[in-house]
């Protein structure tokens, strides 16, 4: 395998691992709850993009039946299963964000801060 083939085949995956690591960094290191939620959102996006990339086939078209292409050769259509799974995952991600923001609002109402070490002190 030449270096060019390696880059062509794996650059997207490697980039998505980097994005995942950035999101994980936000979730682990940052001390503000909002920033943690932003990290969670980045992780979700990277996983969704990972599935979409894995559905790609060289030389295939979108997974809507084209009468000119027919149904005999599945290599002519993208793999529709990851698209379906990620379609539901996106909506669940939005609702997760909504609920987490609601929790953050309630925490801020009660403790007047979103700084995590301070919160842990206050909750003792």
């Amino acid at each position: 395998m030449t270096a060019f083939e390696f880059l062509q085949g794996y650059s997207a995956y490697i980039l998505l691992v980097v994005v995942f690591a950035i999101g994980l960094y936000g979730m682990m290191m940052k001390q503000n709850l909002i920033k943690k939620i932003m990290g969670m959102s980045i992780v979700q996006s990277s996983v969704i993009l990972f599935f979409i990339v894995s559905a790609y086939k060289e030389g295939a078209t979108v997974s809507v039946l084209d009468p000119a292409l027919g149904l005999e050769n599945p290599d002519l259509y993208l793999n529709p299963l990851p698209h379906t799974l990620m379609l539901t995952a996106i909506v669940v991600a939005v609702v997760t964000l909504g609920v987490s923001f609601a929790l953050v609002i309630m925490i801020h109402k009660r403790y007047k801060t979103l700084h995590e070490p301070t919160l842990l002190e206050l909750m003792k």
Partner: peptide, 11 residues
Amino acid sequence: IISIYDNLLGS
């Protein structure tokens, strides 16, 4: 989604 937006605003 509308309900989440309304609730986040109204709190």
